[in-house]
Amino acid sequence: MIKDEDIVVVEEPQLSAAERWYIPQIADGMLVTLRHLFKKKLTVHYPEQKRDLVVGNYRGVHRLNRDDQGRVACVACFMCATACPVNCIHIEADEAPWPDREKYPAKFEIDELRCIFCGMCEEACPVDAIELTPVHDLISLSREQMIFDKEKLLEMYDQTKNLKPRKNPQITGYPATGDRREGKPADNEETAA
């Protein structure tokens, strides 16, 4: 139901004598567009020039983070695959060859065509191994190329680790985790050594 007080009667404004000629208004508009003709352009020549992506939390292509020894940080817990609303993550776990964890992903595949870039996997990951990068120009020549396997995802990490460092929080029981960024003392040094 529409209430009386919700009704707004908009009186049409009466044009003043000068406005009814329309010509000054038209001239005004023409001047505005003329000024814009010679203004500095806001767009860039895209493939040659690229804008700095200032948004840190842009949700682009995924990457699999490496820990400080260069190993894949993933512990194959399947949290991301479970959280994924479109089931685009496929993981096959195996016994970890390293002593500091039980499992590691023998296979880790993301179908980037199926992915909706919602970032749920990143939210779900307990060790912050999977992250979304700011890389947005994702192209390929075939569908097969768009299925990113473990090597490709790790490669993405190598490409983007300077752009967006790994968060890497400390997790109890998993000594490989923890912030190893410069200037921060490592709290899992003895384990690594």
Binding site: D4, E5, D6, V9, E12, R20
Partner: peptide
Amino acid sequence: PSRVTGRQYDMPELPPRTSAPA
């Protein structure tokens, strides 16, 4: 005098408002 949007001239006049405008 003419309205901006060319409102038809034979439209009935609106009754005066009773409630306060939103």
